[in-house]
Design a binder for these strands. Structure first.
Lengths: 340, 340
DNA sequence: GTGAAAGCGCTAACAC
DNA sequence: GTGTTAGCGCTTTCAC
């Protein structure tokens, strides 16, 4: 069923029908309602390719992320999709699997007009961003893992402050030697969180020790953490920049019979539903993942629809929340008590 | 940059260039290589809408799932996307948020040729499947939450057997009154798992008690679980059909000061990374989510590409794995010991 | 081996 | 208020 057939059924011209369907003011109300009801009856739907070809826009956006099996990116997708559904857009999803090579290939693929805009979070391995800088015509919004120096909208959490707060929290609960575990040092989030960590150490007159800053990219995180925790001068606090590293830390602590929080305290960025139920319950910094998705998508659609173009070249910062639980509990705060 | 411009640059006709780009045997090798190198130089990419319009296929599939923030659907998306990337397909994602209304709207939206095929997992609320049965022309593959009576390919885990095994596991660890918690009773997975549960009870001569079979759809799961666990004749084992219900069970047990596994044992279907780290560690039945995604996508692409159409109308069953942990540990099996 | 041309289904400028 | 038509960029049949 296409416009031509529909027009024939109605004894109208194609263009009249087309205009009626798009509720053009040129068309009489009577005609419009006739067209609409016939279209419904015959279950007519616009051919998206013909329409996109003609209009040179696709009503589709691309979401480029490292991984979908992730407690952060999952809710982000939900947020993006909810805005897209409201606005009648379609969402294509592409995964980089943390590989720069794939990221480049995907971005290249998206240059052909298939999408009206791109939302993305960098891969861990991305060291060079020229493939993104060349994307001058395409509306682009970064979220979470952003390219700091590019003048495109960025939606992030308050990574620096969160880094300060997480570190302070450990210090206030008695830690003196705090390790900072992150994934790739290329990443904006790792960097900002680390800066916050360093700032907090400084504010509390703790001498920074560069051997306590570890970058655990790829599969080797457990090896690195094991080595760290086996040192005789091992840390008494771990600040993990991503959830995966806290999970690994828990596992290595089980393995080495180190007790959390007595021997070592752990805090991390996490959106896991189960943090409160872990053994011990895990102190987390929770990012508003769903809202990040919604906000980034909202900005992208404004950009795509060319509204307030100049306003949007800014950074949007959403607050994250520190939820203190047992994994950072100080030794002697009242009785030993297991509250949640 | 389009074919016309590229042809002009090369002093060739549009059709020759088009054929050369698609490696047609009609075109001389010399011409082909000239075209290819020029196309690369000028960064030519085929316009997907023009191509799709002409060829009446989109090289795109739709994935329709209830929710992306989910330890099962996340890895499924990874699996699907990995196959799609290999085959040069694009993946559109649509979320039903467990609402039949949205599911219907999405399916309707996909009738206009935007995608070459659909992969889906039913929403919890879907009681009527006529919107899916009408989808006769469109290649369709179900995974996990399938419509049993439809003759389209289905990729699932061995839900019945898993239900038997989970229930047996509880019985063998001393449970006599086992509750079965599931989401919507509409769902194939709920049903099959429940049948397995009932079968196992029967095999062990345990009288079934219908008051122990609970359906917890929507937000009310905690209320239902709390009521269940407050009964004086409360169950001594919980078999949760989805992870969310096990998490709620843990929370209610904390609240009611019930000890797992001493007072009550818990097993559930879960793909959570953290099951081993929960307090106590959670016995799970793990589904091969990534492989389910890969398998379902592989079948869909075969269907789309019209290969072996008739072979594929079958069910593919992948095995799930029971991982025994502390949450189902029997009272007196050796010393009290906390292994993982 | 190469080229001309029709047409996929739609939109929008223009004519009436 | 309605109709005619060009053309979006591509693929493919058919002619040469």
């Amino acid at each position: 069923m296409n416009l031509k057939q529909l027009a024939k059924e109605l004894n109208l011209s194609i263009s009249t029908v087309s205009k009626a369907l798009r509720d053009s003011h040129e068309i009489s109300i009577a005609t419009k309602s006739a067209v609409l009801s016939k279209a419904k009856e015959l279950n007519y739907q616009v051919n998206p390719f013909a329409s996109s070809l003609r209009k040179q826009k696709s009503k589709t956006i691309a979401v480029v992320i490292p991984d979908a099996a992730n407690d952060f990116f999952g809710p982000v997708i939900n947020g993006i999709e909810s805005v897209a559904q409201e606005k009648g857009y379609h969402v294509l999803i592409y995964l980089t699997h943390e590989e720069m090579k794939k990221e480049i290939a995907i971005i290249k693929l998206l240059q052909n007009g298939r999408v009206d805009g791109i939302m993305m979070s960098l891969s861990e391995q991305t060291t060079n961003t020229s493939h993104l800088e060349e994307l001058t015509e395409m509306p682009l919004v970064f979220f979470d893992r952003v390219v700091e120096h590019m003048t495109v909208p960025k939606v992030t959490t308050d990574d620096f402050n969160s880094g300060v707060n997480a570190t302070k929290h450990l210090i206030q609960n008695g830690c003196k030697r705090i390790a900072f575990l992150s994934i790739s040092p290329n990443l904006s989030i790792s960097n900002k969180r680390m800066k916050g960590y360093q700032e907090a150490l400084k504010a509390h007159n703790i001498e920074p020790d560069s051997s306590l800053i570890m970058s655990c990219s790829g599969e080797d995180d457990k090896i690195i953490i094991r080595r760290l925790l086996k040192k005789k001068n091992r840390p008494d606090g771990i600040f993990a920049s991503v959830e995966k590293l806290a999970i690994s830390t828990y596992e290595i602590c089980q393995e080495l019979k180190l007790k959390i929080p007595q021997d070592i305290k752990v805090i991390c960025f996490s959106n896991s539903q189960t943090a409160a139920l872990l053994n011990p319950s895990l102190t987390t910094i929770v990012q508003p993942a769903f809202e990040i998705g919604r906000e980034a998508a909202t900005i992208l659609f404004k950009l795509v629809e060319k509204k307030r173009h100049h306003f949007m070249l800014e950074r949007t910062v959403l607050n994250s929340t520190l939820i203190a639980r047992d994994s950072t509990k100080a030794r002697r705060v009242g009785k030993i008590k297991h509250s949640k």
